[in-house]
Amino acid sequence: MSVDTARAAVPETRRTAARRVSSSLSARPRARLALLLAAPLTWLVLVYVVALAALLVSALWTVDSFTGEINRSLTFDNLKEIATESLYRTVTLRTVGVAVLVTVVDVAIALPIAFYMAKLASQRMQRILVIAVLTPLWASYLVKAFAWRSVLSDGGIFQWAASRIGLDTPGYGLTAVVITQAYIWLPYVILPIFAGLERVPNSLLDASGDLGASTWQTMRTIVLPMLTPAIIAGSIFSFSLTLGDYITVNIVGGANQMLGNLVYTNVGAANNLPLAAAIALIPIVIMIGYLTAVRRTGALENL
């Protein structure tokens, strides 16, 4: 360890200015904390919190439909519109439905492979598997979505393969969106679950087996409770990333719209930032609710 070098490099105490600052800071943990926090907190608050707060406020503005100019008097019209118009309810339910499905599919696929990686594979195999799972993460998101577009297309490989067993491609639509999103976010779900499983000591599993528990019992009563934070951590990725997506829907979703599309159209073509901001509140509220609910499980430390 570097302790030897540290001693060699600090031969004696000199009363330089830096030294005085340093020792006065050592005695003042609060000042030290303030120095550490100043830059990152300023950045996050100035760039992010202010922007987010401004967005929330602009949800209360309106746009003059003739001039296209923003009227900055506060009203709840946008929020009312979102709460009452059935379009928004339908799209919200559809989006949350897709996000939940993607998450369920991902967790279901991730559990066996993560378990194999963490508990059954040899060290060498484990390394290879981790790299194998990580590599697709680096391939562009767009390319992966586009890959599925060509896989699921008319005359594509899916149809070619499925026709042999009398099936057809699901074509472009919500099923394709779920497949594509589940594919894209899968490594993000596998990795936290794998890391979570690594933290479950083998001795615990052995003890459970020795005490007569069946494999299934051990999984259910030992592994699963210890793994819950990791599973939730993984689900935060797949759920949140799906919740705001509009690009995959454009590529493989056919004519379907998700919340992201509504926001995108209102910012761009419709030039109605206030309404877009109001719609964006829906995923914000859902995500904050989700994060607050899972905070106590320790999932956020597993991200």
Binding site: L37, P40, L41, L44, V45, V47, Y48, V49, V50, A51, L52, A54, L55, S58, I236, S240, L241, L243, G244, D245, Y246, G260, V263, Y264, V267, L273, A276, A277, A280, P283, I284, M287, L291, R295, L300, L303
Partner: peptide
């Protein structure tokens, strides 16, 4: 503060996108 660090990645990209665009 911990939550604040996670928020930009936990909230959907489109929210971060329009919030920053607007700001």
């Amino acid at each position: 503060v911990n939550l604040l660090v996670i928020l930009p990645i936990a909230l959907p990209g489109i929210v971060t996108g329009i919030a920053l665009n607007n700001a």
